[in-house]
């Protein structure tokens, strides 16, 4: 299988202090890759490095991040902006917070789509309603007419995930997309992302500290600690039979339901 996104010996520094050390991994076409690790392990920084979102003081000090023959850290701002959305899309932990509170959800999504392609508002409404229906939202028209505060936190997060799909990107980078949700909504968000892959063949990188989410979604897993990869491989293999001591400690700390007597 072809690698769609390839991190090749990437090191990232903030103000000269290295935080990511020599990290290499690939995202294959149609694959869901989970990146797990504790707070501060550098997992979100990897996504930010790909999207040019490291912020002041942050640089990819060494290595390349390849996407379709282009090295992302080398791209000019405008070129990266054009890729962001139709090619690489990102979902954040609080998708609701990325929306402006005084404009409707529909108006804001229209603006985002319009920044990449010329489309009339009525065409956009049709397109957005179709997408939301495919992703099993019950009342697409109402969602588009709502203000962000009309919708619950869980619903806003689901809308945020759906919105990333409006431009049909080939890669979805999801940074803790379910961490602010409680279990029932978390399950819906996970099912939505699995459905996205099924319908659109989108490749997904999901960064999370929630091992259950990774177990439910990922084909392969990368385990990070202190800016380095500790272990990587087939998701089931790494989660059920971790080879490294650190991964074993991490897995042992995950609370598990005892569903059967004596289990």
């Amino acid at each position: 299988m072809k690698a769609l996104l390839h991190f090749d010996r990437v090191s990232v520094s903030y103000n000269g202090v290295p935080v990511i050390h020599d990290v290499s991994f690939s995202l294959r076409e149609g694959e869901i890759l989970g990146i797990v690790g504790e707070s501060g392990s550098g997992k979100s920084t990897l996504l930010k490095a790909a999207m040019g979102l490291l912020g002041p003081g942050g640089v990819v000090a060494r290595g390349d991040i390849w996407y379709k023959g282009k090295n992302l850290p080398d791209l000019a701002e405008e070129e990266l902006r054009r890729l962001s959305g139709p090619n690489l899309a990102m979902i954040f932990q609080h998708a609701g917070a990325s929306f402006c509170p005084i404009r409707t959800v529909g108006a804001q999504l229209y603006e985002a789509v319009n920044a990449h392609e010329t489309i009339s508002e009525s065409e956009f409404r049709k397109k957005a309603a179709t997408l939301l229906q495919k992703l099993r939202f019950e009342d697409a028209a109402r969602i588009l007419e709502s203000y962000p505060f009309d919708l619950s936190g869980g619903m806003m997060q689901r809308v945020g995930i759906a919105a990333a799909m409006l431009l049909n990107p080939s890669v979805l980078l999801a940074d803790e997309p379910t961490s602010a949700l409680d279990v029932s909504v978390q399950k819906q968000a996970v099912e939505e992302m699995l459905l996205i892959r099924e319908l659109y063949h989108t490749s997904i990188v999901i960064v999370t500290h929630n091992i259950g989410v990774v177990r439910a979604m990922a084909d392969r897993v990368v385990v990070m600690k202190d800016g380095r990869i500790v272990e990587s491989g087939d998701a089931r293999e790494v989660l059920e039979h971790p080879a490294q001591e650190y991964t074993q400690t991490l897995m042992a700390a995950v609370p598990r339901l005892r569903l059967r007597r004596g289990a």
Partner: peptide, 8 residues
């Protein structure tokens, strides 16, 4: 709000 290892 804590990591699983810290939670444990």
């Amino acid at each position: 709000a804590l990591d699983v290892t810290v939670q444990a």
